[in-house]
């Protein structure tokens, strides 16, 4: 049996964590774990994703996210129901919780798998290296396989009939120590700002943009399309944009419907952050830039002339 961790924040489902369910169900029977009373509200909605049993882990203090406590709760559940695999999405929290479980149990953990095969005495995984520029095939030997699945790889399937989910409640045993590392405050995003990782359109800018001011026309284009601006590492290294805008291996992984890459060459470390985009349009002076051949559409030319022209045309179309 596979125990799949469904993430939520104060009762708001992390929809992306459902990506693991379709893969999990192709391997074995799946039950899910949800931590905290405020996760109860999402249990019932999971029927249409094929979930039959949801384990709800309860303790008075399980309110704000606290990785050590979440991990310990899941371990206590696992001791009783003995899953063969504990699975989470390879998000910041997913990788963190699994690593806490791994450290508490002193078992191996494989992060960001793309494929899983359970054998008699071991588990074969394919997992990403270099943020996805390389794959590794590895063998795991363990009493319980602790795995996370790379994000944006499997689509969430929710086409099933709504059906009742059996909720089984567990009161877990936790100490004050387990809650020392918990979220004590949340700083909300800027009012009205489109969040990069949620945006349907991302306008990415690279070295070719040339300066902080050069981003004005990209900001305008993003606004006209209801999207957000992203950038390459060269840009954050120059201080033209905050690091929160960086797309790539050491920045954000985005998967918008449309990515418009302007003045970006397409180094592998940038590419792994934007390759899950549904459509990619490139604006680059160099027809030989690696990103051009990976795109769906490209305009060859100077972004400083082309983007203002697009903005002008978009404004006319909107009038």
């Amino acid at each position: 049996m596979i125990l799949a961790i469904i993430e939520h924040n104060q009762g708001t489902l992390n929809h992306q964590s459902l990506e693991i369910l379709s893969l999990a169900k192709s391997i074995d029977r799946v039950e899910v774990a949800i931590v905290g009373e405020n996760g109860r509200s999402i249990c019932n909605g999971l029927g249409k994703y094929g979930v039959e049993v949801a384990h709800l882990l309860l303790h008075n203090e399980l309110v704000d996210y606290a990785p050590a406590a979440w991990a310990k709760s899941i371990i206590q559940l696992a001791h009783s129901i003995k899953p063969d695999v504990i699975l989470a999405i390879g998000s910041e929290r997913g990788n963190e919780i699994l690593a806490h479980i791994a450290a508490q149990l002193n078992l191996p953990m494989a992060a960001n798998c793309t494929k899983i095969q359970i054998k008699e005495n071991n588990c074969l995984v394919t997992r990403i290296r270099w943020g996805g520029s390389l794959l590794e095939e590895a063998v795991l030997k363990s009493a319980t396989y602790l795995l996370t699945i790379a994000q944006h790889l499997y689509t969430v399937k929710g086409e099933l009939e709504e059906s009742a989910v059996k909720i089984s409640e567990w009161n877990v045993d936790l100490e004050d120590q387990d809650f020392v590392g918990k979220v004590v405050d949340n700083l909300a995003p800027e009012e009205g700002k489109v969040i990069l990782t949620d945006a349907h359109v991302v306008v990415g800018g690279g070295r070719g943009v040339g300066s902080k001011e050069g981003f004005h026309s990209l900001d305008e284009l993003a606004e006209l399309l209801g999207g957000a601006v992203g950038c390459s590492r060269v840009v954050t290294n120059h201080g033209w944009r905050p690091h929160a805008d960086q797309v790539g291996q050491t920045g954000a992984r985005v998967a918008p419907d449309l990515y418009i890459a302007c003045g970006i060459s397409g180094a592998i470390q940038h590419w792994v952050g934007c390759k899950s985009s549904k459509k990619i349009i490139v604006i680059n002076t160099d027809a030989e830039a690696p990103i051009v051949s990976k795109a769906d559409y490209a305009i060859i030319g100077d972004l400083h002339k082309i983007i203002p022209a697009i903005n002008k045309a978009l404004k006319q179309a909107n009038d």
């Binding site: 078992l107 191996p108 590895a138 363990s142 051009v292 490209a298």
Partner: peptide, 23 residues
């Protein structure tokens, strides 16, 4: 607990770019 067997390059997607033009 993890033993690497081999590395694999991710499949190269063939280029299907449509060049819309210059400038």
């Amino acid at each position: 607990g993890i033993e690497t067997k081999q590395f694999v390059s991710p499949p190269e997607l063939g280029s299907h770019v449509e060049i819309l033009g210059h400038g």
